[in-house]
Design a protein around this nucleic acid. Structure first.
Lengths: 273, 273
DNA sequence: CCGCATTGATACCCCACCGGTATCAGTGCC
DNA sequence: GGCACTGATACCGGTGGGGTATCAATGCGG
């Protein structure tokens, strides 16, 4: 199976429409129909149930969609990491902007002091670091359990912390000393983007990143449950511990094939912090 | 990057010889040279240092070899699992022949009693179950830590046990009641095949699977350190606990993309045993 | 030191296949 | 029943992947 065929299949599976998929792929619809038909013939499996009104995945098609996405990610990652390796010996670390700032600083300092340390390009992204690792844009990342999907990565836990509800100073809840998750059920908590970029439905505000969220809280336009360490001096946020909230673990994650010396050194540094 | 190019690259990287790689791929040498050159041009990375006498991987080439193998595995797995899904709703479980027999039997019974259970095709392989999972020949496997390479899989621990030195009844060590790893250093322990099929060097006998090993021990042609549960009634093996040996954990492992109901049910069954 | 064997690169040719346009055929809807 | 929509089919042209023949560089043996 060629990656071109997989890309074609995934496009049709996601669009559920040959015409739109062809447009997205930058080709005409007939060659796309033929490519899918040829793929089905060689796999000996019907992948779509088509009528002129609807294109639906079969069971086999659903399997190929899940597996094929992962396979395309792996091919893309191979390409990206090779390109970067040819450029120089540096590695790319991805972390969530505004989170684990202190831990990240300590880690970078400790690694820089290591003999044989290479340049570390730090990429701070809004949310969803995992796709950076899966697509090969990054070599190692600081992720958070249970928020990030860790499947397929090797990981080492770095630190665990509780969660608090953060509100503006003066908020009705600001005087409380502790809360329970049962009390949070009806609050308009912020909505984070899904991996596909859309937002779930709900009453809370849509947020893109932690900086934006912190400002919204300061403006009393949002309240949010976040790890304790989010609190930074200088702004008028109040954190009320949610005593029975699931603890959040910051961990370092990397793709398991990576036998790179630099990543191994960085991970070792992190676990010794 | 197309999988054809990746296959070509991996063949050259493994053979370190364009002629032999071309033969292995079933094509002539010139198109292979051109394909690699085109790949290097598009990646902007030199992958091999070639002289007429030697072909060596560059740093970027080493990265592409590691990542590319994983990517090819993922593509192959997508193809295999799709083929199998089209055939019917069953799943394939792979386990090591002769190991965890009791656990496996209980698991299969428990799962069969589950509502919505599908057919489970049990594949017993000699060693190295992990490649079955990586290549898509199996959907779920019983593996052993620390023996198997678990990287890239989701896992759930099932049971942990100590290890014993197994010898024939009457062997000089058979009268001992316990041993320490330090006493085993000079013993001719059996040599298992590496993933590539070759055997490491050493004084012990080469073994292919547990049945063969058990028979060799019965014939006093081998002694081996194995998990306690290997012992089965009826043969003349004696197990002497190695009190400070690393415990062996039997676990159930599956590829993380698998969102299949059947695999999830099986895993849930296993954790409840 | 000079052939010579070895091996990767180059030149050139052919055809398979991918993609394009035109068109057909099945289906739901007004 | 006509019409819009959508996937499949027919046919054609060009790119590029694969083949053979050959060159060029390198190490080795006489």
């Amino acid at each position: 199976m060629e990656t071109r065929e997989l890309r074609y299949f995934v496009a049709v599976a996601e669009e559920r429409h040959f015409g739109r998929a062809a447009e997205r792929l930058g080709i005409a619809q007939p060659p796309l129909s033929r490519a899918i038909a040829a793929l089905e013939r060689r796999l000996g499996a019907r992948l779509f149930e088509r009528t002129t009104r609807e294109v639906a995945l079969t069971d086999a098609g659903a399997v190929l969609l899940a597996e094929g996405r992962a396979a395309l990610d792996a091919v893309l990652a191979a390409e990206q990491r090779t390109r970067r390796a040819a450029h120089g010996p540096g590695i790319v670390l991805v972390a969530k902007a505004g989170a684990s700032a202190e831990l990240l600083a300590k880690l970078l300092d400790a690694y820089a002091a290591e003999p044989g340390a290479v340049e570390v390009d730090v990429q701070l992204c809004a949310v969803h670091q995992a796709p950076w690792l899966r697509s090969g844009r990054a070599d190692v990342g600081l992720l958070h359990r249970p928020y990030d999907d860790l499947s397929g990565f090797d990981t080492e836990d770095l630190l665990s912390e509780g969660q608090s509800l953060f509100v503006r100073r003066g908020h009705p809840l600001a005087s409380r000393t502790e809360l329970r998750t049962s009390e949070l059920a009806d609050l308009p908590l912020p909505r984070w983007p899904r991996p596909d970029g859309g937002y779930p439905d709900g009453p809370g505000p849509e947020v893109r990143d932690l900086t934006q969220l912190r400002q919204l809280i300061s403006l009393d336009r949002a309240i949010a449950v976040l790890p304790d360490s989010i609190s930074q001096g200088g702004d008028d946020l109040v954190g009320i511990p949610v005593v029975d909230a699931e603890p959040v673990t910051t961990l370092i994650a990397w793709p398991p094939h990576s036998r790179s010396r630099a990543v191994a050194d960085l991970v070792r540094c992190a676990t010794r912090l």
